[in-house]
């Protein structure tokens, strides 16, 4: 279980969930696994199945919080793990930190603040970078896009 918990938690939190919501997403994934045990065809893939389910629960909670989803809509059952989740791995993360160091400013500072402080507010990032709060979201999106390009060969 310890092999999976940390990755599940990080996936939930990276979707912008606060700790309480992330806890619900992780617990929901474990409960879905209990009710789906008979349908999981490959026990070796259970970690990937849990991550995929955590991600779906996290996305569902985000959409529900934004009022985009009725409360009583159940998520579709996970039949196949999402291979994209293989990047949620400490080795990949270390490699990404190395590649982040090749990015210029303000992306390096912005992404370090964002990644290392999951609950950081845009106002704090704006103050640190000396930019308007309204610029933080677009700048973060641009910097993440650059990081994504640097990660193109990791999966």
């Amino acid at each position: 279980m310890a092999r999976f918990d940390g990755r599940m938690w990080s996936v939930a939190r990276a979707h912008g969930l606060n700790p309480a919501d992330a806890a619900d997403a992780v617990q929901g994934a474990w409960l879905r696994m209990i009710e789906s045990l008979d349908g999981i065809r490959d026990p070796e893939a259970i970690g990937a199945w849990l991550l995929t389910t955590t991600r779906r629960e996290a996305v569902r909670l985000c959409r529900k919080a934004r009022g985009e989803l009725p409360a009583d809509v159940d998520p579709p059952e996970v039949t196949e793990p999402d291979p994209a989740l293989a990047v949620v791995d400490a080795d990949v993360g270390r490699e990404m930190w190395r590649r982040l160091a090749t990015l210029g400013e303000p992306c390096q500072t912005l992404l370090r603040l964002y990644v290392l402080n999951p609950d950081v507010r845009y106002g704090q990032i704006a103050a640190r970078l000396g930019i308007p709060v309204g610029s933080v979201g677009p700048a973060k999106a641009r910097c993440l896009a650059k990081l994504r390009v640097l990660a193109h060969d990791l999966l």
């Binding site: 700790p19 994209a84 949620v88 994504r148």
Partner: peptide, 20 residues
């Protein structure tokens, strides 16, 4: 590859925000 998954991997590598 999604931004969220990259961020999750980097947080795991950095040891920040461990699972409670």
């Amino acid at each position: 590859m999604s931004d969220e998954l990259l961020v999750a991997a980097m947080r795991i590598a950095a040891g920040v925000d461990p699972v409670p």
